[in-house]
Design a protein around this nucleic acid. Structure first.
Length: 419
RNA sequence: GGAGAGGUGGCCGAGCGGCUUAAGGCGUGCGCCUGCUAAGCGUAUGUAGGCUAAUCCCCUACCGAGGGUUCAAAUCCCUCCUUCUCCGCCA
């Protein structure tokens, strides 16, 4: 969330930023709620100070065996008044806290203003589109010919969007996950984490999925818990509510998790094969850094994700998202899009974001700086990578005329039947 | 799921209705002293909100979370979360 002081003192700027992000948070309402809350706080503090003073006096008199009945007589009224003020205060608090959760992060000033994905900027490309002397097939066809997927039986078990990876398909998926984890651990220095896939509402609030994206997630009613839409949630909330030591920063986590998304309302979008799933696998990178470092780290993380695609030999491009396409909690986001010759388009396989102190404020993650003062830290995350579309790209880029495909060199040692 | 014992400041740990503005210790910062080091002495040392020129003072909240009793709650009562031990169930 945003600093209330910032909203108070720069409301025009905040309003403009919200408009640029295609969001609709009501800043005037928040300013009113803030004012109401501060008045309530003031009234409560005053009355409470009075009560503390008199209560102390009563204690003194009783200790000295003096009569305190005159004070005692008027105190129930004060206590009742305090109860009332406390109620008013907590209502004001609640209203403000609820409202501010709907305010998105401010986009960084360098983020291009734009309405939709059409306004995103291509920053750079790597490699080039492969050429084929035959008509390249789409990944579903290749998967079928090589017994890699069983989408129908997945649908039988769960529904559409829940693929079964079969035989070499399963091994390829596992190989890819292990390869990516190993790369980030050994080459980029991340610490591996294995985290829960089901989290509580407070974690979801911490990273910004709640309240805005509540409907996009699977909810377990019995326990009031959520299936994570991304490893970002448990990894970032790992330090929720804590004050880290200066020497504990920076920290870099990488973790493999299943991800679950309801994808409600995405009917009509391109969903063939592995393109858009309810359950998929992802290796996620999360960083906790000092505020002054986060913009450099963002660039570094994009490179970490790019390394995966480069090692796999897949042509891709890097996009800087415009304000309208930058997610609720992010200040700046780069997307990596890999080329899929069968589908004849670029597919998003990674999203790398700097949240600055937005998530840290929500999740209350702070650190003691070198002066010993407590400060919110900055969080970043990036996919490194999501597997389904990476698999699509591998199959389609490495396909042969006879319908078979080659395994990228770096994955071979992870496939048991090849060793 | 059942029974019992806990959850206090950076850490250990006392307190179990008002003398706690949370004892004491450890750690840490600063100062003094000591011709090094160690020890010693003094002093400071939480987070958040308000007030303010101010990281001074002052006021308020916070002793796992939320309610309640009381003039007054770390302390009493209730609910929940969580840790440990034992039992049950179980991959």
């Amino acid at each position: 969330m945003l600093d209330l002081k910032l909203i108070r003192e720069n409301s025009a700027l905040v309003k403009q930023a919200i408009a640029n992000k295609n969001e609709k948070a009501n800043i005037d309402n928040i300013l009113e709620l803030d004012e109401t809350r501060r008045v309530a706080q003031f009234n409560f503090d005053q009355m409470k100070a009075e009560q503390n003073k008199v209560s102390k006096e009563i204690g003194m008199r009783k200790k000295n065996k003096e009569d305190a009945s005159d004070l005692l007589a008027k105190m129930p009224e004060v206590a009742a008044k305090i109860k009332e003020l406390k109620q008013t205060l907590s209502e004001a608090d609640e209203a403000l806290n609820e409202a501010i959760l709907w305010v998105p992060n401010l986009p960084h000033e360098s983020v291009p203003v734009g309405k939709s994905e059409d306004d995103n900027q291509v920053i750079r490309q790597w490699g080039e589109k492969p050429s084929f002397d035959f008509q390249p097939q789409d990944h579903v066809v290749i998967a079928e010919k090589n017994n890699l997927l069983d989408l129908e039986r997945g649908a039988k078990l769960s529904g559409s969007g829940f693929p079964v990876y079969t035989a070499t398909g399963a091994m390829l998926e596992r190989a890819l996950i292990n390869f990516m984890l190993d790369l980030h651990i050994t080459k980029h220095g991340y610490q591996e984490m294995m985290v829960p896939t089901i989290v509580n509402p407070s974690a979801m609030k911490g990273t910004g999925q709640i309240p805005k994206l509540k409907g996009d997630m699977y909810h377990i009613e019995e326990e009031d818990m959520y299936l994570i839409p991304t490893g970002e949630v448990p990894l970032t909330n790992f330090y929720a509510g804590e004050i880290l030591k200066n020497k504990d920063l920076p920290q870099k986590f990488v973790g493999f998790t299943n991800c679950f998304r309801r994808e409600a309302g995405s009917y009509g979008k391109y969903t063939r094969g592995l393109q858009r799933l309810h359950q998929f696998n992802k290796v996620e990178m999360v960083r906790f850094v000092k505020p002054q470092d986060s913009w450099n780290i963002l660039e570094e993380m994009v490179q970490d994700a790019e390394d995966v695609l480069q090692a796999l030999g897949l042509h891709y491009r890097v996009l800087k998202l415009c304000t309208g396409d930058t997610s609720f909690a992010s200040a700046m986001t780069y997307d990596l899009e890999v080329w899929a010759p069968g589908a004849d388009k670029y597919l998003e396989v990674s999203s790398v974001s700097n949240f600055v102190d937005f998530q840290a404020r929500r999740a209350n993650i702070r650190f003691r700086n070198y002066e010993g003062k407590v400060e919110f830290l900055h969080t970043l995350n990036g996919s490194g990578l999501a597997t389904p579309r990476t698999i699509i790209a591998i199959l389609e880029n490495y396909q042969n005329a006879d319908g078979t495909f080659n395994i990228p060199e770096v994955l071979k040692k992870y496939i048991p039947t090849l060793n």
